[in-house]
Design a protein around this nucleic acid. Sequence first.
DNA 1: CTTCAGATGCTCT
DNA 2: GAGCATCTGAAGA
Length: 193
Amino acid sequence: MDKLPREFYNRDTLTVAQGLLGQRLVRVYQGQPLICRITETEAYIGRRDRACHAYQYKRTPRTQTLFARPGTAYIYMIYGMYHCLNLVTEPEGEPAAVLIRGLEPIDALEQMARLRYGLTLQELTTAAVKKGMLGPGKLCKALSLDKSFNGVDLLGDTLYVLPGTQDGPIHSGPRIGIDYAGEDAQLPWRFWL
DNA sequence: CTTCAGATGCTCT
DNA sequence: GAGCATCTGAAGA
């Protein structure tokens, strides 16, 4: 199965955020593919969004990656101990990205349970693993992603997205955890299945 | 069921 | 030095 092409990411961020729902995110960990279905995303658009790190094209060492070409991973650390995975969108030079907020494990549950909780699947219920995959911090831990993956090309071999199926309606609502952004916090830029 | 503090480190002022 | 795109476990209702 072919990876989503760079052109997929080279579009309006809101379009990409919705288009990513139902697609399959693959993270190759020690040669083993960890496969998840994307169930929740948020859009961050630098030129007009106060919640975006690169608001009004603010360029700092951290936000460099947001200006990269579409189809690049943007991973940063938050609250000292968690990482958030974003996929860079729009033409190079436009700082914008989609935050991956929710995943549903499809394959390699065993490995993800170990990475996430340090336990084997037998010591967990499947329901607990699935529940544990909600939230950008948890999902990065389950996939063993950290800031060393910042700037990784999504058309490479360790982290990429395969086509999936989009069944059921797409819901939208305000984003989470960005109260500091004033009116922009109300924008319905969070999408889920 | 709910709220709440604490962990922890990087980034920008 | 402040604050952050978070999560967990413990304690209270």
